[in-house]
Write a protein that binds this DNA or RNA. Structure first.
Lengths: 152, 152
DNA sequence: GATTTTGCTTGCATTTCGCAAGTGGTCCGG
DNA sequence: CCGGACCACTTGCGAAATGCAAGCAAAATC
């Protein structure tokens, strides 16, 4: 599975290549869960409220791992559990997730408090530094909550 | 087809809602073409080198328009042509596209010159300001070229 | 040892996608 | 004003991806 020739690369544009990895409904949500919600296990992702099917979730975790964005490791205290964690390549997606967050809050009817997110947007560098710091420290306390449904 | 009730909103998380609109292989590539390549017409998007099928392209343009991200307007000098343009909501995606660009260059084997993009990353605010300025001025001179294929 | 938990896999119906071909206005040269 | 090119899409259809429910093996718990 390593030295495979890729199915086809559409273009050399970095945006396009990034979207080859992340351009679907679920991949960046898993990254978000790992990055700001402190989720680690299959079950937590499944129950994150977005409603991923288990086969799709398994497939995305496999692909994210193959792409070097997440790592999997069996928990030593409980061999049933597999802890997923972002790699450095994965945590480097923080700005992407952050900008999607800001855009969503500004332009869509979301369940998140605009004021608080705008405040975060005004301290972009600090927020991103804090997210990375927590990643380095393996600190899994949630940075953002799962926002409730709102609107329709 | 207009006043439909949404199928279902998965969660109130802004990231999730943003991905409802943009989480697929093509939508952000169209936004990129409009934002930094100066493309305006159906034909230009089709020939952008990514290989979108025409039915998919038509569908995405329809959805982007429905979401208020692009506007369509018949060209007055040639009634066959339809010019697409980003709305303000659309140009506000510049940071998202920019971060995908930077991440791709840093972590994937792309056809873009790392040095130049890193230089841009170091002048984030100026770059984003310039992109927006061109949008305001309706300046369609390309900001970035279509990077050639590279690697396998 | 039976039950529960966890992280998946399997089967199957439905949806979306990709590809090739076709359609209907519009422009342009003669 | 006629034939041909052009542009922005549709249409039809096979293939792939997705969603859903059920099942399953290994490990932990009772």
């Amino acid at each position: 599975m390593r030295g495979k020739l890729r199915p086809k690369r559409r273009s050399g544009c970095p945006v396009s290549i990034s979207l080859e990895r992340l351009g679907d409904r679920w991949s960046l949500l898993i990254v978000r869960d790992l990055m700001v919600r402190g989720y680690r296990t299959f079950k937590e992702f499944q129950e994150s409220g977005e409603g991923v099917a288990s086969n799709i979730l398994a497939d995305r975790l496999r692909k994210l791992e193959a792409a070097g964005i997440v790592e999997a490791e069996v928990e030593e205290s409980d061999a049933r559990k597999i802890n997923y964690r972002l790699t450095e390549k994965g945590i480097d997606l923080a700005p992407v997730v952050f900008e999607l967050l800001i855009w969503g809050v500004r332009h869509e009817n979301t369940g998140a408090p605009c004021g608080m997110i705008e405040e975060m947007a005004n301290h972009r560098e600090e927020v991103l530094a804090e997210v990375r710091k927590r990643w380095e420290a393996r600190d899994t306390t949630p940075f953002l909550p799962p926002f409730a449904k709102r609107g329709r």
